[in-house]
Design a protein around this nucleic acid. Structure first.
Length: 431
RNA sequence: GUGACAGUAGCUCAGCGGUAGAGCCCCGGGUUGUGGUCCCGGUUGUCGUGGGUUCAAAUCCCAUCUGUCACCCCA
């Protein structure tokens, strides 16, 4: 018979990975923290389908862009419908918002979600085709206090996760369409005048995506981008005030921020406040964004609803996990007080199995390896599992209704009557 | 989508035309029923996949897939 190992089929699963138990402990921490943070701020959970009509994202992202044409995970179903694996949360959530009449809910409507997102990209570290994000959105309020509040949610979340140390809040405003259009004209003009000094990519961006030039990392471009007109300085009066107020609210809750005019959102539906919380390395350089978001007052309208002001952020879970793993020294201190059950011989195994069952709801952290025969092999596993105590039952103990209680640290042991064992174990563990 | 490099045991890797290897992990044992150290033994591979060159390919060539890095892009 030919043994053929089943492995991930090629092509279709490029950029997909398995998340193993070792990493899951950090995911658990996020899964546990998220609802608590949500509750503290009054956010309710929503889950939307992984699949949406391709049209939804085409409309929100804008047709003809790289995002739609080469980076969206799209396919055609048996029923010949064009669908896309969701590339982001916001569009799906706004769709759900409109479809479920949430604009009639008491405002503000605060919802959060967490789950996989997909992009059809060439994978590299930290950029998988399936990745995961958590997401917070507030609908129905255009007050700048809400802008500050959503940033506070992000900062609070990171704090609860224990990764405040090397983070920084970056904030900017990209204004509204009215301030942006003339600004982009001005910007393009400026870059055209300095075109010779720009790097090759930026010359390209000049036509396609002039805003991106602003955060080009090429040394050659830096002096030019530094002196480029800033969107922040071209805001209309209303947007300017909104930004000022947002900043002052941040100060009220002691959030330190840095204004970063190079913050750009790739999508048109964003307006006014944009922000990121970035992780920094030991030297203080920005490594990558842990979360990022912004205001999108126009998105609901794009999807055929009425105008609904909204703001939110998303956060890449893989990156948070990376951060958590780096702080891991602190995490793993807690050593579990484990109790290991050993049974051997036919009768001993039976009684040990029974003891295991009896202790299940006692709150004791139990382990066993009763599938092994020898007492030696079982104690070996007990040692590997760092058990504090071992409860041993062989033929003799089974008949006498007793249990050997062995202290794995000292190596001492005593014989305890079966009906006193729970009490004795608890007593020993308290020490 | 473009370019560079890589893929050999569960993991880290050596071998680079002539019988497929090491360390770690895993499993078992070191006489009656006791772990950590030590000692002994064992399992594991279509050498990523397909084709070609050759008497002979893990080794050379081509294609392909996957990964890593950089670019494009970054919701």
């Amino acid at each position: 018979m030919i043994k053929k190992r089943f492995s991930k089929p090629p092509l279709a699963l490029r950029g997909m990975r398995d998340i193993l138990p070792k990493e899951q402990i950090y995911w658990d921490k996020i899964r546990k923290t998220l609802p608590k943070v949500a509750k503290d701020f009054g956010f309710k959970r929503i889950d939307t389908p992984l699949l949406e009509q391709m049209e939804l994202f085409k409309r929100t992202v804008g047709e003809g862009t790289d995002i739609v044409e080469k980076e969206m995970y799209t396919f055609i179903t048996k029923g010949k419908e064009k669908v896309a694996l969701r590339p982001e949360f916001t569009a799906s959530i706004v769709r759900a918002f409109l479809e479920n009449g949430m604009d009639r809910w008491p405002k503000p409507v605060k919802i959060y979600s967490m789950g996989p997102l997909f992009r059809y990209e060439r994978p590299q570290e930290g950029r998988y085709r399936q990745h995961h994000q958590l997401d917070f959105e507030i609908f129905g309020r255009k007050d700048p206090l809400v802008d500050a509040q959503i940033i506070l949610v992000g900062a609070y979340l990171l704090k609860k996760l224990g990764i405040t140390k090397r983070t920084k809040i970056l904030i900017s405003s990209i204004g509204c369409l009215e301030c942006r259009k003339p600004y982009i004209k001005k910007l393009v003009e400026y870059f055209k005048n300095h075109k010779s000094g720009l790097c090759k990519d930026c010359k390209n961006r000049l036509k396609k995506n002039p805003l991106r030039i602003l955060d080009c990392k090429e040394a050659a471009c830096e002096p030019i981008t530094n002196k480029a007109p800033k969107l922040i300085d071209s805001l209309c009066q209303e947007c300017h005030n909104h930004f000022k107020k947002t900043l002052s609210y941040l100060e009220e809750v002691n959030l330190k921020y840095e204004i970063d005019p190079s913050l750009v959102r790739g999508l048109d539906y964003y307006n006014r406040t944009v922000f990121e919380i970035v992780a920094r390395d030991k030297e203080g350089n920005n490594k990558y964004a842990l979360l990022g978001g912004g205001r999108y007052d126009g998105l609901a309208e794009i999807l055929g609803g009425k105008q609904i002001p909204a703001i939110g952020f998303g956060s890449g879970i893989e990156r948070i996990v990376t951060e958590l793993m780096q702080n891991q020294k602190k995490e793993k201190v807690k050593e579990k007080k484990r109790v290991f059950i050993v049974g051997f011989g036919e009768l001993g195994k039976k009684k040990a199995f029974q003891l295991f069952n009896d202790l299940l709801s006692s709150g004791i952290n139990l382990r066993e390896s009763l599938g092994r025969d020898s007492i030696k092999a079982q104690l070996k596993v007990a040692d590997k599992e760092k058990a504090r105590l071992a409860l041993i039952i062989g033929q003799k103990e089974a008949l006498d209704e007793t249990v050997i209680l062995r202290d794995m640290q000292i190596g001492s042991q005593e014989i305890i009557p079966r009906d006193k064992i729970l009490k004795q174990v608890k007593k020993m563990l308290r020490k």
